[in-house]
Amino acid sequence: MDMEELAEHILDIARNSIEAGATRLTIAVAEDTEENYCCLSVVDNGAGMARELVRRLMDPFFTTKSGKKVKVGLGLPLLKDAVERCGGRMEVHSAPGRGTRVTAEFPYHHLDRAPLGDIAGTIATLLAGNNHLDIFYRYNFNGREMYLDTREIRARLRGVPLDTPEVLIWLRQYLSENEEILHGGEDYEIARRAG
């Protein structure tokens, strides 16, 4: 990638979840410029992993994937490296049959911090070819919050596949515009005051 983006790391983690059989993802990002805090998490309902596997996830080239496809095993180590470079920490919690939670916390103001980037593009890309995947996305910026639940969008589409190209384009623009408005502090359709 030309410039490192947290949104691309989120895409990589979420792709791991999908390959582990997840049908629902909760992606949350919180940024607080005054409290100097940034946090992201990806939670899935996939197969989950035993504790001994979780311990090895940060080892480069370690992978739990099986089958004919090639596995690299660099996604989580790369994110961990990115998070630690900017003074943060990353954790993975998982249990067999109970899904997996990946969280990363770090200071908002840090010279080496990768920008969040095109998170709307990440959400749209995850849905491409994954019509039955549910994503709940929550973004909190300085206490103001927006969210998107693909189950609500799917219900509104009444049988039109969520991964239809025109719908994905609409979804990406819808999220981007609401994110911009959130940064500007105005009222908007899918955002609301936190709490």
Binding site: M1, L11, R15, L74, A124, T125, P165, R172
Partner: peptide, 16 residues
Amino acid sequence: TCGIAAGAREVVTALL
């Protein structure tokens, strides 16, 4: 991971 790092997401959005 390799595809994403090389810009696969931008490819998807450009295709769309």
